[in-house]
Design a protein around this nucleic acid. Structure first.
Lengths: 145, 145
DNA sequence: CACAACTAGATTGCACGCAACTTACTGGAG
DNA sequence: CTCCAGTAAGTTGCGTGCAATCTAGTTGTG
């Protein structure tokens, strides 16, 4: 009996890694004309949905730490899409707020997800089911420490 | 009727992006003692499975370009896990081969996937079904140019 | 042979992710 | 009030991903 290495194509992690990059590439070509990257777009999604947020809150929603968010937010700030300000209440906390420019991107990007979803070749119902299944797996993996 | 921004938690791409990072984090903590990263592990998987490969072949299997692979292979080479050599037949082509050290990692990592799969909370059958569904989506997205 | 079009890898530059560390501020115990 | 553990964000360093460019080797065409 030989020790069998697991096959690449059988690995759920590679499927996720590979699919994530393929879909992100789709977003990239649609976001590029707007000068926004996919992770930056995710931050904007949270801000559009939930309004002004702290860096920590963005980190919780996206599962990213300050090491990733700080420079990313700095770039969005210098692009004029948002502002950062220490709160008066607690000087450690930075509140991130959209500028009109950042708000305007909401309409400019509104049609992007539909096009990307179509590229998956799945109907909306199947897509939602798949998305929820993947989210459940991610939550389970994150919880299993 | 207002323009509604899509919700973060409804996006299939974010689910994939998030799940991919969560699972990769699992691999990271198991691979870290071996001094290997997850993308490096993927390269090793191909080499274990298919033997000596060209850089292009690795790129096709993993959907990575030379800009990513060249430095990654250089690090695996200086770690002593593989060798790179221009082929005599065509001097443009670089063939990547495992060293005994790279071969040895096969056994050292053999038990990792099982542990990670368990952390997903899905039984093997469901995991295979999910993996294939995701791979199909990725292939479809990649094909839709 | 000469030479242009093509190809395989490598290099450069930039934006993530993430670990490890630092800085600045807060709140509580004594 | 002091001190000190705790916390939020920023910084540093390294390894990807990926676009764009470069280099060297190959192939076809006259």
């Amino acid at each position: 009996m030989t020790t069998t290495a697991p096959l690449l194509d059988e690995q759920i992690c590679f499927a996720l890694y590979s699919a994530s990059r393929a879909l992100t590439a789709r977003y990239r070509e649609l976001l590029e004309p707007l000068g926004v990257t996919y992770p930056q777009y995710l931050v904007l999604l949270v801000l559009w949905e939930e309004g002004p947020s702290t860096v920590s809150h963005l980190g919780e929603r996206l599962h990213l730490d300050s090491g990733t968010l700080s420079p990313l937010l700095r770039r969005l700030e210098s692009a004029g899409h948002l502002t950062r300000a220490r709160t008066a209440d607690d000087e450690r906390v930075v509140e991130v707020s959209l500028t009109p420019s950042g708000d305007a991107l909401r309409e400019a990007t509104a049609s992007i997800p539909a096009g990307v979803c179509e590229a998956t070749g799945l109907d909306p119902a199947a897509l939602v089911a798949l998305q929820q299944q993947i989210a459940t797996v991610a939550a389970h993996v994150r919880a299993t420490l």
